[in-house]
Design a protein around this nucleic acid. Structure first.
Lengths: 203, 203
DNA sequence: CATGCTACTTACCGATCGGTAAGATACTAA
DNA sequence: TTAGTATCTTACCGATCGGTAAGTAGCATG
């Protein structure tokens, strides 16, 4: 066996296979009802391998979550750098987030299931900071819009939450329906209707 | 033992206690992770009693769901009878639905967990018709408003879905946060902002 | 009192659960 | 070749799972 073959054994993709299988099964059955036995069977390895790589079921779950979460969080940071009028910035923000969700539907689905569902014995993961970050960013944009006269002065919290509602529901649609009943263009149109209600009155 | 005491034994509330315990545990742990043992323990009876009344775990779950679902559905029918301008009708509709959710937070929480989460081995319950009914009612009101000139002619699907988004997110807030970040009055303000964007242009 | 029914208990079942000890295999370095 | 390490397997563990058979207690009726 050569050095490359050693690499192949070391990096035979066991970790990735386990993570992929776990994602699928946690999504389709939930944490509690997805057994270690079926996860390893779907990965083509034996049970102690899972314990070798991840310590236990919880460790697998935490690693499954923490990777995409960090990625999503860094993407969230980047998207707030967009420049333009407030309406265009809000649209850009929401469309980018929605695209992110569409590119990671399975992970997003699991995140939402965890957020809305019971823990099922799974270790606690706090998604609030992520969602709160989005709420905050949108709130900041609406506030700026109200201050610079682009949006009505009383747009504030209510306006921000109305934007968040449209984004949130559009995101949820990506994994609740096949095909989703709301796509990017439709969410944009919805937001534009709302932004008209938020617009400063010039008459 | 008298006839009243017989009644007491027959109606000692065992069914209700089992349903209440199941609701709490399904909500806090999920269907799969909530065991029959802990449900009966929380009810103060023994395991075969659950099987006596409900046949099995699935039967308990189905009965737990079907009761409130039927109630929610009949409430939904009644709420569409309200008369008034389209904006007022939409507001009334959404506020009533939100109030219904607030009065049945535990059931609503479980419904959402089921809707967004994996089945966990639980029997399938179709919530789509319920949600679809709401989507349809709101769509109908927006359509009427566009036809009678109260709303802009292109309000249609996008406007309806924007309303649904706000209602949906407000509903979810009732069990995601304590206290919820969106209450009835705030949802109303959000909807009014949106309705301004949907309003027919008279200028 | 005997019988039948309802509501409930005790004790048990086979199956599956997450996890682990002991061992085997492959590889590398000395 | 030996020793150590990484990666993996077989076989097993105690605990819990949903479910059930057999029995008991309470009650009403004839």
């Amino acid at each position: 066996m050569t050095q490359e073959e050693k690499t192949a054994r070391q990096d035979g993709g066991v970790r990735e296979r386990l993570l992929a299988a776990a994602l699928g099964l946690f999504n389709s059955k939930g944490y509690a009802a997805a057994s270690v036995r079926e996860i390893v069977e779907a990965s083509g390895v034996t049970k102690p391998v899972l314990y070798y790589y991840f310590g236990n079921k919880e460790g697998l779950y935490l690693e499954l979550m923490n990777g995409p979460l960090a990625e999503f969080e860094s993407s969230l940071k980047r998207v707030t750098a967009f420049q333009g009028g407030v309406t265009e910035r809000i649209l850009h923000f929401c469309l980018t987030i929605l695209e992110l969700v569409r590119e990671n539907v399975e992970v997003a689905r699991l995140v939402y299931a965890i957020y809305y569902g019971p823990p099922q014995g799974a270790p606690h993961i706090d998604f609030n900071t992520l969602f709160d970050r989005m709420v905050e960013s949108i709130g900041e944009m609406v506030r700026e819009g109200a201050e610079n006269g682009e949006l009505r002065p009383d747009a504030g919290q209510d306006g921000a939450w109305a934007v968040i509602s449209i984004l949130n529901t559009a995101m949820e649609e990506q994994f609740c329906h096949t095909p989703p009943r709301i796509d990017g263009p439709q969410m944009e149109r919805m937001l534009r209707l709302l932004m008209e209600g938020l617009a400063a009155k010039t008459a």
